[in-house]
Every structure is written in structure tokens, then in C-alpha cells.
Design a protein around this nucleic acid. Sequence first.
DNA 1: GTCTATACGAAGATAGAC
DNA 2: GTCTATCTTCGTATAGAC
Lengths: 211, 211
Amino acid sequence: MAEDPSGRQRMVAGAADMISRRGLNATSVRELAKHTKAPLGSTYHYFPGGKYDLATEAVRWADDLTMGVLTEELAAGPQAGLSAFLSLWRNIVLNSDFHAGCPVLAVSVEDLPEEHDTPRKAAAEAFQRWTSLLADSLRDAGAPADDAEQGATLIVAAVEGTVAMCRAQRSITPLDHVTAQLTQMIEKMLPELPPAARPATARRRKKTPRR
Amino acid sequence: MAEDPSGRQRMVAGAADMISRRGLNATSVRELAKHTKAPLGSTYHYFPGGKYDLATEAVRWADDLTMGVLTEELAAGPQAGLSAFLSLWRNIVLNSDFHAGCPVLAVSVEDLPEEHDTPRKAAAEAFQRWTSLLADSLRDAGAPADDAEQGATLIVAAVEGTVAMCRAQRSITPLDHVTAQLTQMIEKMLPELPPAARPATARRRKKTPRR
DNA sequence: GTCTATACGAAGATAGAC
DNA sequence: GTCTATCTTCGTATAGAC
């Protein structure tokens, strides 16, 4: 968990980044090895299943990273979680000057040969985990069960779609618009409360909040 | 506009479909020619700029198709337009058994070499056109200007993201959830009216409605 | 103008030297 | 165990025969 100097770990993170930029098909093992300063042959020592093993781990890596951020921030309620989720992708898009995005989305829109289907399955799992986490948080905060489930799905879908739109348009404006609307949506689906109050279920947090 | 038996037109539509399934990088000119029964050499006669010319036209083709559907159905108001927009992609996903999606999104998440950037620009334009059309319709129906603009962006982003989620999960459920939430969102942003009534601006339509 | 045959590079994957 | 050199397949693009 401390920094892992291992070439293996660097390759997984590097693959996630590269896939998020160019997609899975355009991410070659050759170039990845070069960028991460790992010898080409070692790749197949670390990842005997080759490119698709590597891609699957890259998707899981992004999944876990996102789950970590969401879990931590959702402790302070759905709005805080939404905000953190948005910031996560916002920073990735801006720091890469609109060149990087979400590797999970990238894998989801490339039809893979039937026998190398594990990256897509990992992507499906990631979306499911993010959605469930958000839905639970909305329910805990008092949203009706249907709205919680549907709203969580909308949040994940909208963020993924918006990141792609921002990249196409080379502008962060779509993300700002979506942020405003999703924030409104959550407000309307929660029971009305004075801004300071919070339902009891939302108060249990596991750690001290960040920052 | 009647059926075009031309090989050229078939290649553009075929490219749009293939890109929507596997992404731009995995769409080879070779295989496209084979699928559309056009000789490989002819491709470069029709599209002197090669693969990226072809991709750009494919994106514009999908753009125009979507604009046509949207323009026609939005004449009956924003809810009808949303519904048609959703159906369009829903049918594509279901008819392809979760293998096809939106070519505009596919192009948006693949970083292209700087010199072959036109497909991305065409994608940016497509998103912009769809968003503007929806925003205008929402404004005409009485939504506040900010909500109209932001809501239109959310609709486009959410639909694009949801199509990708459905493909990853091999399930149409996300699209159903998003449909419910977006429908609610539009209702809440429009002035309250008895279901039968309609603001005057939404009544002007250009053609007789289909079917 | 249409198409076949081919040039040339880069992809995934592996064999086998260190 | 690590890495280099190489095999095979497929990519884009073109040259030149009909």
C-alpha cells in the first residue's frame, strides 16, 4: 500500500491511464512497456493472459480507486459523495488537458472478442459497485427507494457521459452544467431539512473527514 | 435521399455501425470493405483522406440521423423529444443484443493523433447540436433559461453514458432508471400545467407527425 | 473509374539467451 | 526470473492492371 516500486504495479496504473486516453484497442503492450520502462517480455511474465489480463486489472484498479474516494466521502452524505465523484473525474480531465477520461467507460464501448471478455465484465462490476454505493447513501439519507436506485444510476451514467462530452468539446462546461442539475436532483429527492440538520443514518462515518 | 445503392453511402453507414460497436481504432478499412462488399481499393477512391475521412463522415451521418429524429419529435414538446431520443438508442442497443452503441461517444473517448482530429471535432459538433435543440425546446416549453441549458446537457450526457453502462452490464435496466429520472426532471422544470394543456410555442410543428 | 496485388510498418505473442 | 530477438498476423495505404 505504500509506494510500490514494482514494475507490475506501474504497468497496471499505466495501462489504466493509457486506456482512458486512447481506448483499449489502441493501447499496445509494446508502448505500455516502453512508457513504464518495463521490458516487453516481462509483461507476459507478469500477465500470462497477455493484454486482456492487463486490461482487466487496469479496470479493477480504477474501480477500486473510485470506490475508495466514494466510500470515504459518502460518509458525510450523498451530496458530499457526489461532489467528490465529480471532482475526481474533473481533475483527471483538466490535468490531462482533455486527453484522459475514464478507463471503465473506454472498455465498455469496445466490443471485445467473446473469449477475451473479462475487461468488460470488470467494467460492469465497477458500474454496479459505484451505483450501489450511491443508492445506499441516498436511501440512508431519506430518499424513496425507487428514486435512490434510479438517481444513483443517473449520477454514474451522467458523469461518465459528461466526461466524454468534455473531451470531445475540449471544454469543462458540460461538467459544470451536469453538476448543477445533479445537485438539484439530490436536493429534491431528500426530505426537506434545514441545511445544517442531517438524518441520523447519515451521521455515522468511519473516519475523520478529509481536509 | 431515396435508397442509395452507392457503395459510398453503404460504407459510411457501415462505418458508423462498426465504430459504434468496436470503436474507431478497432474498425479496419479492410474489414469494413469486406462487410459492405466494396473493394478495398475503392475506399481510397471514395475517401481520399483514408480512414479518418471515413470516420468523420460516419460521425456526421449519426449526427444527422439523430438530429432528424429529435427535430421531428420535439415539435410535440420536450417530453416527446426525450422519449424519442431514448427510444432511438434503446432500439440500437437491444437490436444489437448489447453490442452496438453510439459512434459519437466511441470517437469521443479515443485520443486521435493531432493531425487526424476531424472525427473528434465532428463529435463535438454533434453533441452541441443535440444539446442546443433540446435546450431550445425546454425554453420554449417554459423552463428557466439556466435549467433548460443545464438540463439539455444532462440529457445528452446521461443517455450517452447509460448506453455504455447497458452494454457493459448486458442489461437495459440502467436505461429504464435513467428514463424515469429524466422524465421527472423535465416535469419539475416546466411550469405546472394540467396534462392536456401545452404552451403555445410548443404547438408549432413543421410536418405531420410520423405513424 | 474499378478493383487486385502488394509494400511496409506495427500489432500480439513467444523462444530461448543470459 | 529478466530481457532480446523473432514469428506471424493484421493494419493503412498505394501502384498499376483492367
